[in-house]
Computed example of a mutant assay.
Amino acid sequence: MTDTGCSLSAAARELGLDRRTVGKYARAATWQDCVRRTRPRRPTSLYPYLEYLRQRWEKGEHTATVLHQEIAAKGYRGHYQRVKMAIAPLRRGLPIDTPRERPPSPREVARWIATTPSRRSLHAAEALRRLFEYCPELNRTHDLVRQFAAMLDARDSTPLPDWLDQLATSRLPALASLAKAIREDLPAVVQGITTPFNSGVNEGRITDLKLQKRIMAGRAGVPLLRHRVILMAMLRRRYP
């Protein structure tokens, strides 16, 4: 039961959420109760030797093979590669127990670049800054994407010819190919920039139809598909 007297099941139906999710938020006393907690890392067999590795590093021993031999003589039974990975942060000037960050996927980076800078999370903004330092080509691509986004926001295609020239002379084959493709269909692109109309709604309905066919493993007939598509459209209107 929520504070408003509504049952969890009714709240879940109204919000379009799972009942367990609604129950978790209803029971939360503070916002911290709603945040997924990261489990603390378990100490590994290398953990007792980290301080020794740090001291030896500060004294000038930077060879992973030698360090592995030294701690092996002290009782360490782990592999050499674990020692090599453990001292990797020291080579970057970081503490030895700093966990290695998973590199972002190309899809993540593309989403960050396509997102308006003011709406990016602090993590995304910082990750992009570091990527731009190591990859000037990506920084250039980001600037060009944001220029095109500005044209869409203002519905102004005036800067488009100059923007296409920048793509063609960017020395990035993918962008040069994109510029060529846009020039071949330039009137349609200008129309798409300057008018509020787009095919997004139609694409969404096509996606709904394909989803329903996949759910039915390709065996759904036209009458059943029609019924399910209409039901999906009703749900979209109720839960936009």
Rank of each mutant, 00 (worst) to 15 (best):
K180S: 14
R146G: 00
S157K: 01
L160D: 02
A174F: 09
W163V: 07
A149Y: 02
L160I: 06
V145M: 07
A179H: 09
V145C: 12
Q147G: 05
A176W: 09
Q147E: 15
A181Y: 01
H142K: 00
A168W: 12
D143V: 11
R171W: 06
M151P: 03
R171M: 10
I182R: 02
R183M: 10
L152R: 09
S170F: 05
T169D: 13
A181V: 06
D165V: 15
M151R: 04
R155C: 11
A176N: 11
A181K: 04
K180C: 10
R146K: 01
I182N: 01
K180V: 13
R171I: 03
Q147K: 12
S170L: 10
A154G: 04
Q166K: 15
R171P: 01
T169V: 12
R146C: 09
D153P: 00
D153N: 05
Q166F: 01
T158V: 13
T158M: 05
R171N: 14
P159M: 07
L160R: 01
R155E: 12
M151I: 08
W163D: 03
S177G: 14
A154Q: 12
D156W: 02
P173E: 08
F148Q: 01
L167Y: 00
T158E: 10
T158I: 09
K180T: 15
D162R: 11
S177F: 06
L152S: 00
N139P: 00
A154C: 06
A176I: 02
K180F: 13
I182H: 02
R140H: 14
A149P: 00
A168S: 14
L178K: 00
A176Y: 07
L164E: 04
A168V: 10
D162E: 12
L152I: 07
D143T: 13
D143P: 00
R146E: 15
S177C: 07
L152K: 06
L172P: 01
R171F: 10
D162M: 08
F148A: 15
A179V: 10
T141M: 09
A150H: 08
T169F: 14
N139V: 02
A179Y: 11
D143H: 12
D162H: 09
R146P: 00
D165I: 15
R155T: 02
L164K: 03
W163F: 11
Q166G: 04
S170H: 04
M151G: 02
A154S: 11
R171G: 08
P159V: 08
A168N: 09
L175H: 04
A150L: 11
